[in-house]
Every structure is written in C-alpha cells, then in structure tokens.
Design a protein around this nucleic acid. Sequence first.
DNA 1: ACAGGTGATGTTTACGTAAACATTCCTCGG
DNA 2: CCGAGGAATGTTTACGTAAACATCACCTGT
Lengths: 329, 329
Amino acid sequence: MGDVARLAGVSAQTVSRVSNGFAGVTEETRRQVLDAMRELDYRPNSAARALRRGEFRTLGVITFSLSTLGNIRTLDAIAASAAREGYAVTLLPVAVPTQDEVNGAFSRLGELAVDAVIVIMETHLLDAATVSLPPGIPVVVADSDAGDRYTVVDTDQAGGARDAVRHLLDLGHGTVWHLAGPEDSFAAQRRANAWRATLAEAGLVPPPPVRGDWSAESGYRAGLLLAERPDCTAVFAANDQMALGLLRALHERGRTVPDEVSVVGFDDIPESASFLPPLTTIHQDFAEVGRLCVEGVLTSMRRPTPEPGTTLVPTRLVSRRSTAPPPGH
Amino acid sequence: MGDVARLAGVSAQTVSRVSNGFAGVTEETRRQVLDAMRELDYRPNSAARALRRGEFRTLGVITFSLSTLGNIRTLDAIAASAAREGYAVTLLPVAVPTQDEVNGAFSRLGELAVDAVIVIMETHLLDAATVSLPPGIPVVVADSDAGDRYTVVDTDQAGGARDAVRHLLDLGHGTVWHLAGPEDSFAAQRRANAWRATLAEAGLVPPPPVRGDWSAESGYRAGLLLAERPDCTAVFAANDQMALGLLRALHERGRTVPDEVSVVGFDDIPESASFLPPLTTIHQDFAEVGRLCVEGVLTSMRRPTPEPGTTLVPTRLVSRRSTAPPPGH
DNA sequence: ACAGGTGATGTTTACGTAAACATTCCTCGG
DNA sequence: CCGAGGAATGTTTACGTAAACATCACCTGT
C-alpha cells in the first residue's frame, strides 16, 4: 500500500480510501491511485484488512460431508447468496457424523476466519456441540428442529408429507403406505409423523412403515417387501432415491406403476422426471432455504440479539405419472 | 493473548508458543497457559495469525456452481483432504459460466484469503481468465485439458470411454452408438473422441452421435430418436443421467434393455445401481481426483516452480444388467 | 475582508500475532 | 569452583490495513 501511495504521490490513507470505494476523494486523485495500483499489481491483503476491520466477510458452513442432494443444493444456494452479499463461504466438512467429530468441527471453527456459521445438520448431532462455539458468533441451523435454541430455517417437511398423503387419498386410495427414512434423521421423523397424522385425520389406521436409509438400494429392498402385499396400492416414499429403488422392485415383481401401485417421492431431484414412470413428488425449494440462512446470519450480525425461532419454507406437489386412482376405481 | 499471559504469569510470547504447540516449554508452564486459555475462553485470532504468518491455511475452490454430481464429489473429496492437512476450503461459486463471470471470480480471488486455488472447470472458460490471478498463487485445475499451462488432475475419460465401447463390442455388438454430452464440454468431447477412436480401431465406421446436455430429459429425447433405429443395439451414454432418460425412452417405445438394446453409462452415480435395469457404467474415482488436487497445490506451495502436466485417474467398468449380447447372438 | 465552515488529504495509532533477538538461569566438565 | 553452553522464557518489532484525529486550502456569507 505504501508503494502505491508513493507512486501515486498521495498518502497511504488515501490509497485505503480509494481501495474501499470511499467518497470524498477527487476524481483526479482516485484515477492516479488506481493507475498506481494497476501498475504495481497491488492487491489488498485480506488478513490485514480482516485484522483491522474485525470481520472476515466470510461465512462458515458446517455440514456432514456433501452426502445428500438436499445439503448440496442448500450449500449451493448459500454460496450464491453469500457471494451476492460480498461474503465468501468456508466449508467445514465433518467426515463422520459423530458427536466427537461435530464437536471437533465446532472447536476448529473457533480459530477459523469466519464471522458467522450456518449448520446444515440434524439436531441430535448438534446437542452439546454448542459449548465450544465462540460467543457472539451468529448461528443459523438448517434441517433441524432446534428452533428453541437457534434460528432455524427448514423446509416444511410436515406440510409436504401431508400434501403427498392427501394427494393419494384424494385419488381414492384406501390407505397410504410409507417408505420411511432412517430413524435418526429428523427430517425422516417429521415426514413419517405427518404421514401418520394425515391418515389419522382421515380416520385411517396407518399400516406399518417400512424403513430405508435414504438410498435407492434400501428403497429396492423395501420395495420387494411391499410388492408382496396386494393391499398396498399407494406408497409415500420419504425421498426420491428410495422411490427409485421402490419403482424397480415393483417393476421386477410385476406390479405396474401407477396402474396397480401409486408412488409419491420427496425432494424432486432432477432425475425424478425421468424415472419409469416419471415420479410424482414433493418439490423442495432448497434455493430459498439457502437464501434465508444467509439472510438470517447477516441479520443477527447487524442486530445484537436475535430471537430463536423457525422459518418454514413451503413445498409444492409436482404431479407426474407415478400416481393414479387405485385399480378398479 | 495478553490477558492469558497475565493470568498465567508468563509473557505473551510463551502463550504463542503453547498455542502453536512449540517445543521448549516446560510442562508446568504449558499447563498453566492452557488453564488460563480455558479460563478466559481464549481463541487465537486467525486474521492476526494469517497476517503475521503470511499464509491463511485456506484453499480456494472455483467451480461453476454445484451443478454436476462429479464436481460435487470432487469438491467433497477436496474438502476432506484439505481438512486432513489442516487447511480450510473457501468456495468461489461462479453463477453463470461466462468468461466475464469467471474473470470476476478470479479477480475477487486476488483479494481473498487464500493460499492456493483449485479450479474445477472446463478449459475453454479458463482461457484469458488467468491474467488476473495473483502471481505466486499455486493453481491446480480439475476437469480440463490445460495440461500445457497448469497442473491438471483429471479422470481418464478416454480410457473409461474406451472400456465402455470395448465392453459392448466384446459382447458381440456390431457397432456402438453414442449419446454424447454437450459440445462445449471438454469431458464430453474426450468421451466422444475415444468412442470414435475405439470403433475405428475395430475397423468400424461410427454411426452419427446423438447429442444431449447431460440431463436425463435430454437423454430421453435422444432415446426417442435412437429407439426408432432397429439397427441400434448398443448405446454408450456419456453420463448416467442421460442413460436414465435413454432407458425410459427405450422402455416407452417397447425396446427392452438389455435384450434388444444394451446401454452403458458413465460416472456410476449411486442411483445407477437402481435403474431399470441396473446400469452398467464407468466408475469414476472422484475422491482420488480431489485428493490429488489438494496434494498438487500443497506441493507447489512448498516447492518453487511446479511444472505443468496432467495426472490421470483411472476409471473402472462396473458391469450390471443393462448390457448383454445383441439379439440373436 | 474575514470568521466559520466544508471538503480533501495527511499523520498517528492500534488491531493480535509470531519471528528475531535478548536475557536469565541452570547444568556440566575441567 | 568457574565458565561455557544450552534450555526456558522475556522483549522488541513488524506484518498491512483503516479508524480517529489533524491539517490545510478554499469557499461563503456578511
């Protein structure tokens, strides 16, 4: 900076002012400084800048590897929103989703060049991890129910699941089976609960849920079971990948979709429109979730004490060809 | 740091030594310092640290949003490898893959707190973007052919494509059709070229390639065309998503896979094992690509001048049920 | 014409750390 | 018993920037 100042014939402070787009610099001076910068290929040192300013213009994102598509798309939206606000995004991958690993990520975070943190992670992993968070660092959590302790942004899982079940019931199905996600997933729990509640509202007793682990393979295994039940004409799968496996199992067992069995997924992954048949599913607006996460942390950075609470992002039913009225209806 | 020093009854420098795990501090002193740190909830200030040390312990990753699965998995592996080496990863999303946008990302990078850069991007977008890269910052490029100018790590696209085509020829198919990726993709080009070359080696004239845009939807449209050709018994799709769409089109047109038509994909996405039928495909080792990228930048950071060159990561054919000998063979 | 302002620029200082150098104290060989 | 050498710790300084304050020239209204 000193070199630039010397070359431009001004003080270092003036260089700083130009560099930060400060008003109150003559157009003439500004041009000279910019020329000098170009000439010397000057780049502001971000470490010094951060030290002086006390902020890094960087958001940290903690996530359990980039395993699920939802997380990835949320992350993508976060990165885009952050960039729009002039913030960079630093990734804090957690290899194995154990309490220890998560704690580790949180404490590494303490020394990390980050102004705020967005956590994309299930609640139960979050417990007790909070202790090592540097005080005063805003946190927003996605994909969690910790609304009492944190600011939470999440997809309206319950609403989506309800829509899925209603859609099938409205088509005339006697009941709706559920291909559930893993028990330790909060999202899976909420989808299952909403499925159960919606059936109960309709005066129906839910059939036993079949459990998968989100993978297409597990959906296939579950599908083999469901294909044996002639009374099973409608299935709500907790995500699209499992629905894919389910479709394969039903096909292999000679149960046609949607003529004999209707299937609804959850997520609306891009491929689901090309499944056999194209999958009716619940579209999640990950972009909006990511945007709200960034908005959330930035708000709490500007205001002193943000109140905990949950923001729900609505879902949308995308009707394709995997659903139809039950046989003989 | 001063407060910690005071509380522990030592100098700030000793705190620094403990904080950096420096040898030559008495166990007794070390304990006192650590206690004081805990007591005061001290965290080293990474901005000051970076300023003093002249490095950020951070890698920047430039990528055209998180659109393709391959990029994501590479990114994931990069983040994991970087974490293992004590480096953080900062994301530099490029919203639209135009030359301007890429240049923008590169110049923002100049002021970014980053010691090295990994670019996951097609070559043609890279041209001319390099000018604004701060000198002395190591760069490694994935997914590119710029081996003459940069250190490049890439999957052995040609080898994979060759294996795919050979597999089909070995099964007895008279020729192999190609469902190609978009023209402006370097990966797509190389897969197409290898397909053509392999056929030529076998003394065959390649049928006209059908072009898609990587999406399942485009694969479906292409599939509708291919289904009309009774002489088309074997298709090599440039990625699994297009293969998925292709499978749907063939199915809808009553062409059974693999009895009438064999299909090979590329990527081995997790879902491909659950397609109808499960897809024979070329497995890419993204984790290895990511690992090598990190290794590459770290090496060039330690050594003065790295030589440009390309490292190829081998692929592996995963044989599933979408391939079989041609009808009447 | 002159006091009082206003806008442009310069000077000083502190941000928190770690390298370089300085000091202290202890051990060990002769 | 003394001095050399080394281990442990302390002191000084600089990293590059931007906030706070200081200065200076010039304009405006009476």
